Simulated scan of single mutants.
Amino acid sequence: MSTDESRLATEWQVWLVENLSLGVGEEDARRTLMGAGVAEDVARAEVARALGHPYFQACQRLGRRYAWMESVMDAYSSLHRQAGRDRALEKREGLSAEEFFTHYYYGHRPVVLKGMMGDWPALGRWSLSYLAERAGAAEVEVMTGRNANPDHAPQAEKHRTRMTFRDYLKMVASGGETNDYYMVPRNENWQRDGLSPLREDVRAPAGIIDPGLRPDMMTLLLGPAGTVTPLHHDNMNVLLAQVMGRKHVRMAPSFQRHLMYSRYGTFSHVDAGKPDLERFPLYGEANVVEAVVEPGELLFIPVGWWHWVRALDVSASVTFHHFLVPGGNTYMPEPG
């Protein structure tokens, strides 16, 4: 089979080889290429070219060595579906710390916890005006210019901007619905002295999170309606406390990584807000669950679980990762 230069753009060459390697059928691959404007004869020739290329054949052989792992994950996914898991992310109220750890932390299952933030002063106090009054003069870091870069999340270093907290709050108040600027965990603003008055309004969920609450034990997320955290997974367990506004969350299990079209290690090619199942068909097999997380609710995100988040209102969240477990939080090591 000839290995002459492809007539496809590089991104479509990558897409074609990846999807054929993942088991997408030849006809389905041709139809997708044709749907993207590739002539039928070119689509047929390119699929044949890919299948006959020695690099693709080597890729197939390598993939077969790991096929057993995907078989295990598929079997577990089937059991997950048979167990009656539906698309609604489970919400629990009055859950004890013991039950949380037994059924969710160690059970590796997400959950929304209700009724555990009643002692938070932040719930009754936080508003944009209150935040400005208490800490407006503090210098903070914000991710800006996100709309111009689809890869803003994995390329965070390109988007760091310093400003006063008061100026940022004015942007949030007046800018309407947008994904162009957002204060995220990577900004590490809790560790800046100027925001210390706000940390006084936060409490550790009793029996679940280390009550020490040093600044490096928390992160702050704050932004306008319309901010989107693209589909990705974290390498540790996270507990997100929703203080202001609502967030729409979609999640997929860690054991369905082979359906997520991963990139940059922890991110996905899939836009979980409007997934393109023509381009990413395997994502359609994922056991996606979703919920709207309300103020006063805690979202447990198990290590490795894929999640996409969109703010429905001006939103402020605090995340924790120092769980009260022997040996500390569970971490997923990065591949070598």
Rank of each mutant, 00 (worst) to 15 (best):
D271N: 14
L51F: 00
H258I: 11
V318R: 10
R61A: 14
P205L: 01
V325R: 13
V42L: 11
P110A: 06
P215S: 15
L89N: 04
A153F: 13
V314K: 10
E27N: 02
R279M: 12
R65P: 00
T266F: 06
H108F: 09
K170C: 01
Y55E: 14
V184E: 02
S2A: 02
G23P: 03
R64W: 08
R49Y: 04
D41E: 14
V38F: 03
L221N: 03
G176E: 08
I208V: 15
R162I: 00
E70H: 14
A39Y: 01
P295H: 07
M218F: 05
A29Q: 08
W190Q: 12
I301E: 07
H321K: 14
R192A: 07
L220G: 05
N235M: 13
A225Q: 09
M116T: 09
S71L: 14
L298P: 13
V243A: 08
D271R: 07
A43C: 08
K247G: 10
S268T: 10
R81K: 15
A225E: 09
D119G: 03
P326S: 10
G194A: 04
V38A: 09
P295T: 05
V303A: 15
Y55G: 15
A241K: 06
F56S: 05
E200N: 00
E188K: 15
F165S: 03
P326D: 11
V293K: 09
G176Y: 05
M332P: 00
K114C: 09
N189H: 06
P335M: 06
L221K: 00
E188D: 12
D216H: 14
L123D: 05
V111Y: 09
E278H: 10
E133F: 00
L51S: 02
V14G: 00
A148V: 07
V293Y: 09
I209Y: 04
R257F: 05
P215Y: 05
Y106P: 00
G25M: 00
G212T: 11
E98M: 03
T164M: 04
N187W: 01
L239C: 11
G245I: 08
D276Y: 00
Y261P: 12
S96W: 01
R257Q: 14
A50N: 07
G52A: 12
L259I: 08
D313S: 06
T102A: 15
S127V: 03
T229H: 06
L221A: 01
D41V: 08
L22Y: 09
N287G: 08
L259M: 14
R81T: 10
Q242A: 03
S262Y: 10
Y106N: 13
P335W: 08
E18P: 00
G304P: 12
H248R: 15
E99W: 03
P54H: 01
R146D: 04
R31S: 11
G194P: 09
M34T: 12
A148I: 02
N237T: 03
N189W: 05
A252E: 10
G336H: 06
M73V: 04
P110D: 02
A43H: 04
W126D: 10
M163G: 07
I208M: 13
L198M: 04
P154F: 03
F101R: 12
M332G: 00
L213D: 07
V47T: 06
T144L: 07
L128G: 10
V228N: 11
E98Y: 02
A122P: 13
G145H: 13
